[in-house]
Design a protein around this nucleic acid. Structure first.
Lengths: 212, 212
DNA sequence: AAGAAACTAAACTAAACGGTACGGTAGCAG
DNA sequence: CTGCTACCGTACCGTTTAGTTTAGTTTCTT
């Protein structure tokens, strides 16, 4: 039931496409859009340059394909993260658990680099940047807002504008380490303890402001 | 008493230097480091390319000169902003005034572009990015922390770690519009009313969490 | 086994890149 | 006016870029 038999035809092509995507992602992430060269990408993928152009057309399209794929990843990540959010009694515990996971995921070096790249090219690829915003923080805000609305309806939180509250909560959790990571090198790792401290204090602030 | 007579010698040279800096800033901000060309910079400054190289050595040095100058601006801005912070009775009023001004300044399109550029090149120019972080948000955090410590000593705020509280406050005020601006186009303007709403709610949240 | 499709390396184009060498010109001392 | 110095713009250097072409080889299909 696997595609490991002889990797015939389309499978082989798809695999090559994936290899190119991976190589291109690595080069774009480390050199930026203008700094990345198609030769380097082809070499890194161990593939000839015409193959790259056959699969993706031109440099812009290749870039767009990468970012689009990362947007899908981000969307999926947001979805699973929020689905794991329990609707139980212990609001503080639930939020803390969510906050700790959230900040741990978002500060991964790989995601920091993607974020840098999209921010850098937001003026040259405005549609991609907007789509990314809607898929990543936007989706997180919407999901949190829905949750907050439910809890507020039960009188267990005091929230008049759930979307706004969700945005404050999200950035309360992420801002400090995220901004440090943006300006310090990409490979700056935070300790688990430090991330958890940021998350826990964010939850405390949020509940002090929006608690019943 | 002015230098408008014949603009002889050093004055003329200094003026040309400033013109080049301005042109280079415009090109770097809109094209990024790798995407900016020295020809375009020279043309925009209405100056020959050798003149650019006489004044700044090479591309990296020119880039560093621009960012360094912007760091000075940011430092100065942070300083004056916090000096205007009154130490009076009305803590909420003071913080609200500060927050409104702060968010209005930081979301200016010009500063958004500088932020984008520095984030984009943080891996290639780590020292510049770190210096920027220390001069802009870092300085703001330190100044706010000092203020919070004073107020906490009077028992009018309940803060055990002033630096951490300052970071939360700063990003509470800035994060929502700043992140939107990063991913939407550089010229996305916020209405005064919207910015003030973000600032006021940030102050409310902060005081709910750190009030006496 | 034969044909079709896709892939490869390599050379190539035209343009743009960062950086420099040269020939002219402007201002200044005598 | 003459000679000197210092700068400035033009034209150029070698390299690299995105993207294409060619010719030969591998690989799947039938």
């Amino acid at each position: 039931m696997d595609k490991v038999t002889t990797e015939s035809g389309a499978d082989r092509s798809a695999h090559k496409r994936a290899t190119i995507l991976e190589a291109a992602r690595a080069v774009f992430l480390s050199k930026g859009y203008a700094g990345a060269s198609m030769d380097e990408i082809a070499a890194r993928a161990a593939v000839s340059k015409p193959t790259v152009y056959k699969n993706f057309g031109d440099k812009q399209a290749l870039f767009a394909a990468i970012i689009t794929s990362d947007i899908s990843d981000a969307e999926e990540r947001s979805q699973t993260l929020v689905e794991a959010l329990p609707h139980g009694e212990d609001i503080e515990g639930s939020l803390r658990k969510f906050a700790r996971r959230h900040v741990t995921v978002v500060t991964q070096p790989h995601l920091i680099k993607i974020r840098r790249l999209i921010i850098a090219e937001a003026d040259r690829f405005p549609e991609l940047a907007r789509t990314w915003y809607e898929a990543a923080p936007g989706r997180a805000h919407a999901n949190l807002a829905e949750l907050f609305q439910e809890i507020a309806a039960q009188g267990r939180l005091n929230i008049s504008d759930p979307m706004l509250a969700a945005e404050y909560f999200n950035w309360l959790v992420l801002s400090i380490p995220l901004n440090k990571a943006m300006f310090l090198g990409s490979n700056t790792q935070f300790s688990r303890a430090a991330l958890h401290r940021y998350a826990d204090e964010a939850v405390r602030i949020f509940l002090a402001a929006y608690g019943p």
